[in-house]
């Protein structure tokens, strides 16, 4: 497995405004963020603040209304296998088996063939614990397995950047923590530049090299917290002083934004404020 395949993904003055019936809605404004090669950046912010829109822009599914995106200094537009997305809801092709889904990218780009392709896919399936399920269709896999298959489908392409949009949402607590361990292990073994959006602070802090707190809509970078905790990360880091200090700081920042979102009448913001008040 190659280590150090990640690229430097930059968002420069990124902006996105949607033209709605009720008038223009500015979702992202003046967004500047650099993802350093082979680091894991976690993005957090009030719900409905435009995190999914950010992913869509970075992936090239939507065009920004302002600013540019650069990958290793080169401007990128439109979707491509250099920036892959792991979706909130599974986007595995239901008509392909686990093996065929994971093999899809390199196969259609004709990068790998025959025994070579098979070996690469199987190595990756082994890494995510799915080698016995290679011939099953997505509907025959559990929710956690589907997410792992989806991770494998993205990572086989060795993308310069991997964008994960709340990939573990909707999983039960136990599966979620298992998935986090799988993912952490995968990242620490293979590296790559990762952007991970989550609404769970503990999940974010456990994973991150840096934690980006995003403001209420229009989304812009509020603060970047460096998470200099040793890797490989284990559950025990959550009891360390440094972790707790970071968590307190992040909570305060998030709480500020949640209050703003609440005052602005943001979607789900009442729940959000309540939840963070309870945590703090």
């Amino acid at each position: 497995m190659s280590v150090g395949i990640g690229g430097r993904l930059e968002a420069r003055n990124l902006a996105k405004t949607y033209e709605l019936k009720s008038g223009p809605r500015e979702v992202i404004s003046d967004f500047n963020l650099t993802l350093e090669p082979d680091t894991l950046t976690v993005v957090m912010g009030p719900s409905g603040c435009g995190k999914s829109a950010l992913i869509n822009l970075l992936a090239g599914y939507e065009d920004p209304t302002g600013g540019e995106i650069y990958l290793d200094g080169k401007r990128v537009q439109g979707p491509g296998p250099d920036r892959l997305v792991v979706f909130q809801e599974t986007a595995l092709f239901p008509w392909l088996t686990t093996f065929e889904n994971v093999a899809y990218g390199p196969k259609i780009r004709k990068e790998l063939k025959g025994a070579n392709l098979e070996r690469t896919v199987l190595d990756l399936l082994k890494l995510v614990g799915l080698e016995e399920f290679r011939d099953k269709y997505p509907s025959q896999l559990s929710g956690g397995m589907q997410r792992r298959a989806e991770l494998a489908r993205a990572l086989i392409n060795q993308p310069q950047a991997t964008l994960l949009d709340e990939p573990f949402r909707g999983l039960d607590a136990l599966t979620r923590s298992l998935m986090r361990d799988y993912y952490l292990d995968l990242f620490e073994k293979r590296k790559g530049t990762h952007l991970f959006v989550t609404a769970e602070l503990d999940e974010g802090l456990t994973l991150a090299d840096s934690l980006v707190i995003v403001t209420n809509r229009p989304a812009t970078v509020k603060k970047i917290l460096k998470v200099d905790l040793p890797r490989p990360r284990v559950e025990a880091i959550r009891a360390e002083k440094e972790y707790l200090a970071l968590k307190a700081e992040a909570l305060e920042l998030l709480h500020e934004e949640a209050i703003k979102s609440f005052k602005a009448g943001g979607l789900n913001s009442a729940d959000f404020v309540g939840a963070y008040a309870a945590l703090a």
Binding site: Y61, P79, G80, P81, V85, A91, F93, I108, R109, N157
Partner: peptide, 14 residues
């Protein structure tokens, strides 16, 4: 699901 079209486009499908 439009996600399948997006996924395929990301993976480089013509």
């Amino acid at each position: 699901d439009p996600a399948y079209f997006r996924a395929a486009a990301s993976l480089g499908a013509s």
